[in-house]
Amino acid sequence: MKLIGSLTSPFVRKVRIVMAEKKLDYVFELDNVWGADSKVGLANPLGQVPCLVMEDGGVMYDSRVIAEYLDTLTPVCKLFPPNSRDRAAVKVWEALADGVLDAAVLVRLETTLRPPEQQSAPWIARQLGKVHAGLGVMAADLGEQPFCMGIHYTLADVAVGGALGWLAFRFPDIDWRSDYPNLARLSDKLSERASFKDTVPREA
């Protein structure tokens, strides 16, 4: 399998963590979707990463789709529970983490791609409001549990840990560690896993 992605995308990191946890072999092909020489559009018509190209030439995109598929390939470190209600709960956690990232990414694009005089302060505030609201719900739902789903490590933790790591990388002024000590504890615990250590976001 070949994974097309970047070293900074939190959605690519989610898939890389899943690959590592599942002990799956793959080729990692770096691609800058904003570069003139970007090739991901040849595989993904949306021009987005991550994009998974399978051995038979089939293509998958969207980190949620890819992660769920990868979990079926081997019984090693099952990241989705078999129970339908628990499985849905994991996907809700993932949707929340991805939603926080979607809003934060939009803020970053607005503030880095537009000159200051063209930026919309109300729109930025609206997106940041989603980030803070999402963090608050994450913290409330986590409570004092060791992992998002209780005692079991799942894709919920991969998604939440990746979101928190990206916020620390791109938005260090959002002090979620002080506001939500339980999220900080979870993040610290996850950061000790090899899959997280090996995929820390960084500029190429």
Rank of each mutant, 00 (worst) to 15 (best):
M1Y: 08
F11T: 09
V12P: 07
R13W: 08
K14N: 09
A20E: 12
A20V: 10
A20N: 14
E21H: 14
K23P: 10
D25L: 12
Y26R: 14
V27K: 12
F28I: 12
D31R: 07
W34H: 12
G35R: 11
D37R: 12
S38P: 03
S38H: 08
K39T: 15
V40W: 02
V40F: 04
G41F: 09
L42W: 02
N44H: 04
N44R: 06
P45D: 11
Q48C: 03
Q48I: 05
P50A: 13
C51V: 13
V53D: 09
D56W: 13
Y61R: 05
D62G: 04
V65C: 11
E68F: 04
L70E: 10
D71H: 10
K78W: 06
F80W: 13
P82N: 15
S84V: 13
A89E: 04
V92R: 02
V92N: 06
L101K: 03
L101C: 11
A103K: 00
V107C: 15
L109P: 05
T111W: 04
T111H: 07
T112W: 03
T112Y: 07
P116N: 05
P122Q: 07
I124T: 11
R126F: 12
G129V: 03
K130E: 14
H132V: 06
H132A: 08
A133E: 11
A133R: 10
G136T: 03
V137Y: 00
A139M: 00
A140Q: 08
A140N: 01
L142T: 01
Q145S: 01
G150H: 00
G150M: 00
Y153N: 04
T154M: 05
T154C: 10
D157G: 03
V158K: 07
A163T: 09
G165E: 07
L167N: 05
A168R: 11
F171L: 12
P172H: 13
D173E: 15
D175H: 13
R177K: 10
N182L: 00
A184V: 02
R185S: 11
E192I: 05
E192K: 09
R193V: 12
A194L: 15
D198Y: 11
A204R: 15
